[in-house]
Design a binder for these strands. Structure first.
Length: 489
RNA sequence: CGGGACGUAGCGCAGUCCGGUAGCGCACCUGAAUGGGGUUCAGGGGGUCGCGGGUUCGAAUCCCGCCGUCCCGACCA
């Protein structure tokens, strides 16, 4: 921080910019334990709004919430071979309780497939007991080597949906449906466009049949995996004896899915929209939509302006209004701080709209509204705020999404390029590269080794090229599919 | 766990080479003025200098050990 008041710029050091923004906007802070963070009210408020929206969407798609315990017998994790291989290296293990060595160590859940499907096995007898459509909001622990605020911490908050079905096809359509829910949420609420698609064998979830993901592009052109949805097949059902009797009387293993998004999305939101002045928060997820900065000199003016501000908040923000008509308003009435200083602070914190309200405005029956993303100022008559505020907020919401989409496409390469050119791109500005792939995992490994880029996904049809690639970018062999390459978080 | 940097007031740092009264900026508290883009003046509070040991009359400073944090790798939502 050369200048004490300004953030390091994105261009100078994206990583430093991100860290400083998170800390100074008071979204999160480092905790005493390495790799752990405290999510402060400004950051938690965003997560809460994400939760509320997603929870509504899960309920609307037929899911119910439940809660399973944090502690899982270590042996459970070992019951599915690929699963234990994938997660064992990063589990935290409890060996003592009440001062005594435990007979069997307990792991802090890195994810809850094992405990949940072991319980499903108790609850399911018949095909009539299916499907089970459960979600839980929880914390999980993964002992990562390198951590970053929101993007990768030892403990993080998430939701994990877990379902059980009678058939493969039903499980598959559930897997796809929830990926679609994530996509809708990310686009409509986070204003963050995503590429959806399937993960390759090497990138899929440990223990899954197939993994699908939403991949977003951050402002440094790196990809962020923002949500995953897994078709688990019968792998866990077999490990935990999750069986049911079919209508035909036969005994069958159930088909499971799991899907999750985490507090990592807060990091994605930050890196998608924010600028060198601080956070830019999409209005729909902003804990505060409008901050009123009162301006006054004399005591008379002060009383008059604050009264007007209170009145605006009491009417436009009244809890008696239906939520979509209720504005989330904060009045910054702090004494001894000049308006300019407040402007900078609320810009750092990402409040979408700022309302400047002073004696001159009141005389004219108006206020001045400033948009956080564009900085544009406009006077608005007080009597029109009721309709003007939601219109401005929605306009900002959709422009943020459109801008993020334009930026992603401007940094995507869809024409066929040579592997040499690809190396240049990845060594330079990076970005998303669509290319043919022969399907050989060794090629993935080689490219990762040489360029640090990985296959983010095999994009869903709507994201694929009009002209499908016929050869592998790396080997020149016939392509089995088109893939999306990028360096990732 | 490998490579690098660092640990001194809430935050950012100087002081360490060359041992001798613990400092600066911001933040914070009090008062007054100020108030439409980071306000000014005056006064004030706050530290076992990461921890442990050693050398010395005397250690933030020198030596040894440990712990922790951040950045770059290998691992990952």
């Amino acid at each position: 921080m050369a200048d004490d008041k300004k953030l390091t710029t994105r261009a100078a050091d994206f990583s430093a910019w991100y860290n400083e923004l998170v800390l100074r906007a008071e979204l999160a802070d480092y905790a005493p334990v390495r790799g752990c963070m405290v999510i402060r009210p400004n950051g938690y408020g965003i997560w809460e709004r994400m939760q509320r929206q997603l929870d509504d969407m899960f309920k609307a798609t037929g899911h119910v919430n439940a809660y399973f315990p944090l502690l899982i017998p270590q042996s459970y994790l070992s019951k599915e071979a690929e699963h234990v291989e994938g997660f064992a290296p990063e589990t935290a293990v409890v060996t003592h309780g009440g001062g005594k060595l435990l007979e069997e160590p307990l792991v802090l859940r890195p994810t809850s497939e094992t405990i949940i499907y072991s319980m499903f096995a108790k609850w399911v007898q018949s095909y009539r007991d299916l499907p089970i459509l459960i979600n839980q909001w929880a914390n999980v622990v993964r002992w990562e080597m390198r951590t970053r605020l929101f993007l990768r911490t030892l403990e993080f908050l998430w939701q994990e949906g877990h379902t059980a079905h009678a058939t493969h096809d039903e499980a598959e359509s559930e897997t796809r449906r929830m990926l679609g829910v994530y996509r809708t949420f990310m686009e409509q609420y986070m204003a963050m466009p995503v590429i959806t698609g399937q993960k390759t064998e090497s990138e899929k979830f440990a223990g899954a049949l197939r993994t699908y993901a939403c991949e977003a592009m951050m402002q440094d052109n790196k990809a962020l995996q923002a949500g995953t949805s897994h078709n688990l097949g019968q792998n866990f059902a077999k490990a935990f004896e999750l069986k049911f009797q079919s209508a035909e009387g036969t005994e069958e293993f159930a088909w499971n899915t799991s899907w999750g998004v985490s507090t990592r999305m807060v990091g994605g939101l930050i890196m998608t929209h924010s600028d060198d002045k601080g956070l830019v928060c999409p209005p729909r997820l902003a804990p505060i939509e409008v901050v009123i900065v009162p301006i006054f000199r004399s005591d008379e003016d002060k009383a008059r302006v604050l009264e007007a501000a209170d009145k605006l908040k009491a009417t436009l923000g009244s809890f008696e209004r239906p939520e979509h008509l209720r504005r989330r308003i904060h009045i910054d009435a702090r004494e001894g701080m000049k308006p300019g200083a407040k402007y900078y602070e609320w810009e750092l914190r990402g409040v979408p709209l700022r309302m400047e309200l002073g004696p001159r405005d009141l005389d004219a029956g108006q206020c001045v509204i400033v948009r956080r993303d564009t900085g544009t100022k406009q006077p608005i008559p007080l009597v029109e705020l009721e309709t003007a505020l939601p219109a401005l907020l929605e306009q900002m919401q959709s422009e943020l999404r459109a801008n993020a989409l334009a930026r992603r496409e401007a940094n995507s390469i869809r024409e066929r390029i040579s592997y040499d050119k690809f190396k240049e791109v990845m060594a330079g500005n990076g970005g998303f590269v669509y290319a043919g792939w022969c399907g050989d995992p060794a090629v993935e490994a080689q490219v990762k080794e040489e360029t640090k880029a990985t296959i983010r996904c095999i994009p869903d049809p709507e994201f694929r090229s009009a002209e499908p690639p016929t050869t592998c970018m790396v080997t020149g062999r016939p392509a089995t599919c088109e893939v999306l390459w990028a360096k990732a978080y």
